[in-house]
């Protein structure tokens, strides 16, 4: 009888704990479900409709998807985005690696160096683009003032095809390289010092140490940094939109920019949702690939 009562109490306690657990989850979970998960499904539904910002909504099946696949502007902005992924990923990863190596070189003033390289990362998108607009602006901007002072020609950084990408790239490297740098730095500091000491005893040259110890030891982190950087670059919008308006023409219009334009300027929510799904699938692909690469590593 006593043990039965005890069991009963135990069940009651478990139920109580379970209830409490859900109550603790509830505030976050409700917001998370309503404003992150639900929008994904709502977007999926909207992508099959002709929804506009106002007016009646009709389900039109795969029409938006067919339109997207035939839309030159969609492929154009996808192409621009991938172009940026291709030029920015190696640049930012390599610069981030170099900066991390410099911080890790045990120079005097390491804290100052780290602060200097990282501080731009804490600035807002708008501050960064505003600042670099003034650096690149023709006639009155900083770089052109210096160039013309030494007798050079005006360069129209933000309105010349090709060159505008260089300007966007410089801005983005300056702003975000701190992130990659910190990840490399954490990895560098995890390399056991005994490995370097052993190499020194063996009389290895600096280049040998770099290519035979440091770089191989960073392989895993490099994969991570590359994947994260590709995802970040794929989301490019603010720099190109604020600095060049996607121009000249549509030369720097990215996929997020085109989604924004279709949804908010042209008010075609259905079509914009369709492209959002495509965008989401690409990012998801990158994320899953990254997870897979790391899961493999852990499994070994």
């Amino acid at each position: 009888m006593g043990s039965l009562n005890k069991q009963h109490d135990l069940h009651a306690a478990q139920r109580k704990e379970s209830l409490a657990a859900w109550l603790f989850m509830l505030p976050f979970l409700a917001l998370y479900a309503a404003f992150l998960l639900f929008p994904i499904f709502r977007g999926l539904y909207t992508s099959f409709t002709n929804a506009r910002l106002v007016g009646t909504v009709r389900i039109i099946g795969l029409e938006n998807y067919a339109e997207m696949l035939a839309d030159k502007d969609f492929w154009g902005s996808m192409g621009n985005t991938l172009y940026f992924v291709l030029i920015s990923t190696p640049t930012i990863v390599v610069v981030g690696f170099v900066l991390a190596m410099l911080i890790n070189a045990k120079l005097k003033g390491t804290v100052f160096l780290r602060t200097a390289y990282f501080s731009s990362y804490v600035l807002s998108m708008s501050v960064v683009t505003g600042l670099w607009i003034f650096i690149f602006q023709p006639y009155t901007g900083l770089i052109n003032t210096i160039i013309t002072k030494f007798g050079g020609q005006e360069i129209f950084w933000l309105s010349t095809r090709g060159i505008v990408w260089l300007a966007i790239l410089m801005t983005t490297v300056w702003w975000t390289v701190g992130f990659d740098m910190v990840l490399f730095l954490a990895a560098l500091q995890n390399i056991p010092t005994e490995m370097y000491e052993a190499a020194e005893i063996d009389g290895a040259s600096k280049a040998q140490v770099l290519f035979k110890i440091t770089i191989p030891m960073l392989r895993e982190s490099t994969v991570l940094v590359v994947m994260l950087q590709m995802i970040a670059s794929f989301k490019l919008f603010g720099q190109t939109y604020l600095m060049a308006g996607g121009g000249p023409g549509t030369h720097t219009r990215t996929i997020v920019h085109y989604i924004y334009e279709s949804g908010f300027t042209n008010r075609r929510l259905g079509y914009a949702s369709t492209m959002s799904i495509a965008f989401f699938l690409v990012v998801l692909g990158f994320s899953l690939l990254q997870r897979k690469l790391f899961a493999n590593k852990e499994g070994r």
């Binding site: 992150l36 929008p39 994904i40 989604i259 949804g263 914009a272 949702s273 959002s276 965008f279 990012v283």
Partner: peptide, 9 residues
């Protein structure tokens, strides 16, 4: 899920 993918909904 990046915010960029859900701005419309």
């Amino acid at each position: 899920i990046p915010i960029e993918a859900i701005i419309i909904p």
